[in-house]
């Protein structure tokens, strides 16, 4: 399907069809259950599903719209995530100018991603912002706890802007013989990451015994982790048609998404535990803040980009 220079591939349409049919089935099922016996659990599930509808619509626009629209959408996601992280962090009055400056990394980073200036894209935040922000803190002159601010602001910038901006690079993937385009790769990554959370949760509930990180996330178990990673790997193989990869390669990508998704979730959990908060915000009803939903995808995105480009180029 072509329209003024860009096209929506069959793969993308097919995956959207699956996502929306799952949502319709869930919505109907929860609606029928809530009519017969109302409980807190079902109310919570309905709120969550309603939020998923909005997120799915956003994802639908992201993968079907032209690259410029998708890039702007992703930059706003980065902005909301960064705002949330900076809001929960512990900062000093003297950090204000550096906090303000951190937001300006977003348009620059996504400009570089949109024009595919790959080299500059890779070093802008890890080098320029990593030096620039501490310099601003030094100029402000207050040295009490300056080390904490020097490390947390660039770290939050890396997590919310640098990591997510790799998704905007996927719009530029062009592999001979692969008709899916960037949209298909993005939906592959999002489906794997989102369902990996579900798989790990479900396996943990079913078989969970041995705690994996008792001091960080008491609910996470070895059984949930291993079961989730293997199931996500299998799903990666199943959704192979969305990628230009070989079957075994997309299975490996699925396994890696499982492991990395777990790590991202744990990192944000540990930060929240340190700050003694349950959720990062209440932006998405039933889910918590934006960072509560993005916690695994911030880590899986750059991994997916680099691993699949390694497989494609070899």
């Amino acid at each position: 399907m072509t329209f003024q220079g860009y096209y929506i591939s069959v793969e993308v349409l097919f995956s959207l069809l699956i996502i929306f049919s799952i949502l319709i089935v869930c919505t109907c099922a929860f609606w029928i259950i809530s009519k017969t016996n109302r409980s807190e659990l079902i109310d919570e599930l309905i709120i969550r599903t309603n939020s998923w509808w909005k997120m799915a619509l956003g994802i639908g626009i992201l993968i079907t719209a032209p690259a410029i629209v998708g890039t702007i959408m992703l930059s706003y996601v980065s902005f909301v995530a960064l705002r949330e992280m900076l809001s929960i962090g512990r900062f000093r009055q003297a950090d204000r100018s550096a906090l303000f400056a951190a937001y300006f990394a977003i348009p620059v980073q996504y400009y570089l991603a949109y024009h595919n200036y790959y080299h500059q894209f890779l070093y802008f935040i890890p080098l320029i912002m990593f030096i620039g922000l501490p310099v601003m803190l030094v100029i402000s002159g207050n040295t009490t706890l300056i080390g904490r601010s020097m490390s947390t602001i660039p770290a939050m910038l890396m997590l919310t802007v640098y990591m997510i901006s790799h998704m905007a690079l996927l719009f530029h993937v062009a592999v001979p013989g692969f008709s899916g385009g960037g949209g298909a790769l993005i939906i592959f990554l999002i489906i794997l990451t989102a369902l990996n959370d579900v798989f790990q949760f479900t396996w943990g509930k079913l078989l969970g015994k041995r705690k994996i990180l008792p001091n960080v996330s008491p609910n996470k178990t070895w059984e949930g982790f291993v079961g989730g990673v293997l199931t996500t790997g299998a799903l990666g193989g199943l959704l192979n048609f969305l990628t230009p990869l070989e079957l075994h390669e997309s299975f490996i990508v699925g396994l890696a998404v499982g492991i990395m998704g777990f790590l991202g979730d744990s990192i944000i959990s540990a930060v929240k535990r340190d700050l003694k908060i349950k959720d990062t915000d209440d932006l998405i009803p039933g889910h918590g803040g934006a960072m509560d939903r993005l916690d695994s995808i911030v880590i899986t995105t750059p991994m997916f980009y680099h691993l699949s480009s390694y497989f494609i180029s070899n």
């Binding site: 902005f79 900076l86 809001s87 009055q93 303000f100 937001y103």
Partner: peptide, 18 residues
């Protein structure tokens, strides 16, 4: 809640924060 960080008393700089 939080407005004292977005724009505190002796400042003109508005920082986006929740």
């Amino acid at each position: 809640d939080g407005f004292g960080r977005v724009l505190p008393k002796d400042s003109l700089l508005i920082i986006p924060l929740i």
